[in-house]
Simulated scan of single mutants.
Amino acid sequence: MEYELYADVWFLMNFMMDSMALFIAGKLMKQRIRPGRILLGSFVGTSASMLLFFQLKDYNWYQICVHFLVNPLMVYLCYHSKSKKEFLSQWSVTYLAFILLGGVLEWGMANGTETSHFILWLLGSVLFLMIAGRFLKNLKREKETKYDLLLVTREGNISVKGFYDTGNLLVDPLVNRPVHIIKKKVLWEQIQKEQIPLRMIPFHSLGRESGLLEAVTLEGMYIMKEEHPLYLKKPVFGIADEKLFQDDECDVILNAKSMES
């Protein structure tokens, strides 16, 4: 069986799909949209794909070159990634858009789908990408609020999970330092072992209107951020009951001013 290939139609359809995929991916990743770069990336990518299609006799090699050379080149030309991590993130989202939109195009052409049905499938793919983007955004936001922590005491270290809470603005009036809230069971044994002195600090809206909270000062704390660990010297911790913690995965509620240190 032989097929007729209209190069101009093939080029135009792929150029439009590539442009749409780059635009949608840019929106999902909150990238600055520059029409000139999108058109440049799409033109170079479509031209390279067409050239490879006519030059390579092995279709498998054609697919490999398109997926691992042409598509990454389009992404770089469009977004000008500043780091490997940023590039991989941009490539993965754009690649998903390429697969969905390209799949819809091939399916419609192979099955002779009516224009109205084809448009519905295309809109469905775009909607799916938008939902996936929202999910990834929420996942990233949740990841950015939870951290691995290393509490430093005189006789050892304690590894715990921490939750960054912008609503925790408690300050120790004695030393004028932000107060982090920790589960009593996590630190109590170490407090007794090292005889770390306890003191009382006033608080408001911590499960009740006002009161006094037991607090201690440790030697230090590392917040394990992805870029680099953040070290806080002489952090203050308020000792609280577990019922205060809504998330069982976390043992510490970090103060809102933690990242300002």
Rank of each mutant, 00 (worst) to 15 (best):
M109H: 06
L40G: 04
S42D: 01
K183I: 06
S19D: 00
R37T: 12
M20F: 03
L69E: 09
C250S: 08
L123F: 11
Y62C: 01
E114V: 05
K146E: 14
L139M: 12
Y76D: 06
N157D: 12
M29D: 06
A97D: 07
H117I: 11
H204V: 15
V252D: 01
C250F: 03
Y222Q: 06
T166Q: 03
G220P: 08
R32S: 15
G26P: 07
D241Y: 10
L149D: 04
P202S: 06
C250D: 03
I33D: 06
L149W: 07
M17V: 08
W91C: 14
D58S: 13
A256F: 11
N168Q: 06
S116C: 01
V175F: 07
K233S: 11
K82H: 12
I181W: 02
K257F: 07
K82S: 14
E226G: 02
L5N: 07
A25G: 09
F53H: 03
K193W: 13
S92R: 05
Q195A: 13
Y222L: 10
P35V: 15
V9L: 14
H80T: 12
R177L: 11
G238D: 09
L51R: 02
I196R: 04
C250A: 11
F98N: 15
I119L: 15
V66I: 15
V186C: 02
A256E: 11
K143Y: 09
G26V: 11
F43Q: 00
Y95T: 12
L244M: 14
V171D: 03
E86N: 08
W10G: 00
Y6D: 09
V126R: 04
I181P: 04
L150C: 10
V93W: 01
W91T: 14
V186I: 15
A21L: 03
Y59N: 00
P197A: 12
E142T: 09
E189Q: 14
I64M: 13
V70H: 04
E4M: 11
G162E: 06
L73Y: 01
H180Y: 02
G167V: 05
H228F: 02
W121V: 00
Y59C: 00
G207T: 10
I33Q: 06
K146I: 15
K243F: 05
P197T: 12
R37W: 00
N157K: 14
Y79Q: 10
K143D: 11
I201H: 03
R134C: 12
L129D: 08
I239G: 03
R199S: 07
W121A: 06
A48L: 13
L100S: 11
T94N: 10
S125K: 03
Y59D: 00
P72Y: 06
R37H: 08
E194S: 11
V93Q: 03
N255G: 13
Y164G: 01
Q190E: 15
Y3P: 10
R154T: 05
C250T: 14
I131F: 12
Y95A: 11
G133P: 08
L232R: 10
I33C: 05
D241W: 07
N14C: 00
L244R: 05
V236A: 02
N138W: 09
F118I: 05
A25L: 08
K234G: 11
A48Q: 00
W61P: 01
N111L: 13
Q192F: 06
I191K: 00
D247G: 08
R141Q: 09
L77R: 01
